[in-house]
């Protein structure tokens, strides 16, 4: 990769694939995902960590991609909504969200799904309280959370 002034080479894994990208040290992970890698499934909302629509999974933990500097992800493994499932082969959580009508405008959905996935990977059978806490960093203005919680509770049923 050619040298670009002021930029640094970042190596990380995104959705299981090794990625190399030249980044400006001031860029966030959100900017790199959306603008450089064109993974626009990760949404840009408040850009200050309030809304959670940019939630991605970094080494098994959810982070707000707007609050992580791109260079902090060096050698790390990032999972975005694009890695969760495909249109032909949806992830069980995606199927459950559809089945339970847990999507309205859809803007919170990618982040919500990733928070739910990270929760279920740590805790396969969470209580209602644990689910509420698990998605408490993801704001939703449409659904009142009721159907989202039902979708997560019943993902394997």
């Amino acid at each position: 990769m050619s040298k670009e002034p002021g930029k640094t080479l970042l190596k990380m894994k995104v959705n299981g694939k090794a990625v190399e990208v030249m980044v400006n040290p001031t860029w966030t992970l959100l900017r790199v995902l959306r603008e450089e890698l064109r993974l626009t499934g990760t949404k840009k909302g408040c850009e200050q960590g309030d809304c959670g629509v940019c939630t991605v999974i970094m080494d098994g933990r959810t982070v707000n991609a707007c609050l992580v500097l791109a260079l902090q992800t060096e050698s790390k493994e990032i999972e975005t909504i694009e890695g969760l499932g495909t249109a032909d082969q949806l992830h069980p959580l995606q199927k459950s969200f559809i089945k339970h009508g847990a999507v309205q405008c859809g803007f919170c959905t990618p982040g919500m799904l990733l928070s739910a996935k990270a929760l279920l990977e740590k805790n396969a059978d969470p209580t209602l309280e644990e689910i509420k806490r698990g998605i408490s960093g993801n704001l939703c203005r449409c659904t009142g959370f009721v159907k989202i919680i039902k979708a997560i509770q019943n993902v394997h049923r």
Partner: peptide
């Protein structure tokens, strides 16, 4: 009906 429930639940939250 599922949409209507979603509208009611979202309305209540607002």
């Amino acid at each position: 009906p599922s949409n209507v429930e979603g509208q009611i639940e979202g309305g209540v939250a607002m």
